[in-house]
Write a protein that binds this DNA or RNA. Sequence first.
DNA 1: TTGAAAGCGCTAACAT
DNA 2: ATGTTAGCGCTTTCAA
Lengths: 346, 346
Amino acid sequence: MSNMADGSSRDQGRAGGSRVTMAAVGRMAGVSQVTVSRALSDPSKVSPETLRRIREAIEATGFVPNAVAGALASSRSRLISALVPSITNITYTSFIKEFTDRVREHDYQVLLTEYGFDREDEETTISRHLSRRPDAMLLTGINHTAQSRRILLGAGIPVVEIWELTDSPIDICVGFSHHGAGREVAEFAIEAGYRQAATVSANDERALRRAAAFAETFTRKGGTRVEAVRLPAQASLAAGRAGLSELVGRIGGSPGVVFCSSDLIAQGILVEARARGYDVPGDIAVIGFGDQEFAAHLDPPLTTVRVDRSEMGSIAAGAMLDRLGPGGGGETIYDLGFEVVRRATA
Amino acid sequence: MSNMADGSSRDQGRAGGSRVTMAAVGRMAGVSQVTVSRALSDPSKVSPETLRRIREAIEATGFVPNAVAGALASSRSRLISALVPSITNITYTSFIKEFTDRVREHDYQVLLTEYGFDREDEETTISRHLSRRPDAMLLTGINHTAQSRRILLGAGIPVVEIWELTDSPIDICVGFSHHGAGREVAEFAIEAGYRQAATVSANDERALRRAAAFAETFTRKGGTRVEAVRLPAQASLAAGRAGLSELVGRIGGSPGVVFCSSDLIAQGILVEARARGYDVPGDIAVIGFGDQEFAAHLDPPLTTVRVDRSEMGSIAAGAMLDRLGPGGGGETIYDLGFEVVRRATA
DNA sequence: TTGAAAGCGCTAACAT
DNA sequence: ATGTTAGCGCTTTCAA
């Protein structure tokens, strides 16, 4: 049976939430509705005795304040909107976790939606979110439709773009240079003595930018032409394995060092290499991206690029909270950098 | 500079969202506010010519409807609240993705929050969520505080509990038997010829229940006593590796078959076993849990227990939407079952 | 097909 | 320390 239909709730009127209001609590405590509101928002403004009676009434009725009404009346929703390409990808969820924890300390809730990798879908999602009147918005990446930028500006709320850097953010931007990361990995590979290289990337705009920067730099600094494998899918172990198969099929011999778009792809390549009896890094060297938890614990431990996703979430939250606070906040562009972590696969 | 403070938005009044209202759109289109509302909610009730002018006005002003006001007026928020223990754990995010996609088709948004593994924290989160007046709520697991159950019942909205089964759900329940899974894995192991076994589990109530059922059945069906390693942490590759080290330290020789609380733990054990030069499944056999994407692509491919998380999300969404629909919905308990998938590690 | 009026449950401003 | 009043921007109901 639906609990909407059973006897105990039938008399509670329409569905959608508790029917107890501040007015009802006030009546029970012998005060007006406003006093209940004050007791909740600033108890110091209410006498101890009144406070006690109000608390009793709240307890007795099971009153849960209606934040919808509160938001409408105050024009502050205490809601922060966050958009990520994928919710099943730890790359994004790890900073979302940190971000959420930080803003929750300041009594904000996060409305999180995944929209895929399409700018039009992002635009639709932004619109939907704005209709909830969030106090601020977190966006992944810097590449949005013109209409997205327009309605965002029109909303007049703080906007934080993460994961990438730009000179002209909508508002605040917290990230690192993907081009720079590709370049530095190439320099690392050249210094490590590799003269042959390939890239294996998931179908992701930022990943492809890293791969392109890697290839350009690697060749310019003395390496041969870089074979680029572009996977049709999102990152997965299977995709990584397929990536190595594709690569081997294309070039015949040893690919040298392979720069992957993620640690998961790299792990797939490691598994496939082992299955094929290749020595790592002798026959094939592997560089991942992200330095996820498992990277250091693979066998052999994965050489990769560390990006501090937790710190990114934390800084994004801090910058946003600053904007929401009295002062209005300061700095606009935060470059978090990255770090090539050499372990055993390259 | 904050876009809250720049010239273009200074005149838009308070922060929190677009300042354009239905009344303003109506004025521009030469109709009343109600007509704009109707044009949006049921265009067939408005004349084509009026509709055209309203749409022009919406386009020109960049109007974004205020769902907060709408929710207050209608007592329907089109918001669905969802609580999961962890947002960085693919175990939970994979069904949340499916669930979200399904309810989005019916124009619901999902407010998702992770609360950890503590019932009191869950209670706090439930309260916070209810203040947003969601139209329904999704909960992970069946073990909630008495107060949680009370306020949930008081809210009078559909509640779906997932991941577990119970005879007395709050409302609807979609899951499988964890006890049954542990039992079946033990039966599988016995039939496969193993007489020695161990469990390695993350610190998770449901995982421990599976391990206990496994141990009980395994011993009863003819195996020796089962050594149980309980990891102090959440699942990770490192935790899995540590689990095998701990196990080997405890028992000296070969552990026989090891039933892990997740595929990730199992993978850690595989890596550690390889690093120690153990043969799999000769020296040590491994059984995972979850059948995540990577399980089939490991080397050797992982024997595990398949739980169809996508289908769980889909069924949960369907059941919830049924409840929210005109009829009120039907069935209350959905047992999705599970399946032992034999591959190469056991 | 359109509009006027009432009210959803709060907060903000102004009393007292 | 407490109360009164006036909205917030919509949906609902009733009229025209």
